[in-house]
Write a protein that binds this DNA or RNA. Sequence first.
DNA 1: AGTTGTCAAGCTAGT
DNA 2: ACTAGCTTGACAACT
Length: 295
Amino acid sequence: MKIGYPCINWSIGCTANTTFRLANYTDQLLLEKSINNIGCLKKILKYNLDHDIFLFRIGSDFIPFASHEICNVEWDLMLKEAFIDIGNFIKEHNMRISMHPDQFVLLNSEKKDVLENSIKELVYHAKLLDVMDLDETAKIQIHVGGVYDDKEKSIERFVKNYKKLPERVKARLIIENDDKSYSLKDCLEIHKKTKVPIIFDAFHHECLNNEEPLAEAVKLASKTWKKKDGILIMDYSSQKMGERKGAHATNIDEQLFKKFLEETKGLDFDLMLEIKDKEKSALKAISIAKSMKRL
DNA sequence: AGTTGTCAAGCTAGT
DNA sequence: ACTAGCTTGACAACT
């Protein structure tokens, strides 16, 4: 099991998510920020290596405005050496990378331009992982999307649009059960029609489910992953006390996490901790997992 | 130097 | 028909 955290490391004093305003766009600025982000990512990965953290999510702003029509610069070619260097580091240490395009990426949108922009954004994500020469275990996770007052039709639209995606996107795309609209069961229905692997979000499953116990749900999701996809990735969080249902906790609840590890005993997966204090909780989780002989 | 409003993109629930 | 909230850091303009 690899344990990791998304996008930000608060300990090392740099971020791999620096960006700028669209109004200020220049190719020069894009390259400058990207180089900064690549440099910081390397620092984060080194930190991770030193702390037994082998899973990390790269933020979507890594190459700012990469999928926007204003961007004509060939960042993948111009920064190729740096990408290869990062990729080598990742491969050399057997790390795993994921990405998570945000709420605007909707493969089941009823609007043509939303779909087009979504595909462009997915192509950018795939290109980034490709240029680092990572294998197909490096994944891009999205939600199914909106319901648009008709879930069955919206699922059909997802399936239809999924089938038209470029192969290099399909090779990495995975879908996530969400906390409001599309449950694990819905995702499994989509999987049947597309073969897209399902990233299982344990916290979302608590918010929205069809009575499947945790271990059973994990097994169902695991079966959607082929050998070339690697083992199941799971997102983990817990409820932030006093906030709306679905709000992510600020730090990991050690008791709940122990319970989680017990309930998933014998199951194989990589674990992404979607918890606000990031690497701090990852370190705690790793220490707990070691004490329970899971690492 | 510190504070505050704003940022490419959408959907949903509530008024 | 319209707006706030999601979730949330980081930029950029303004004290």
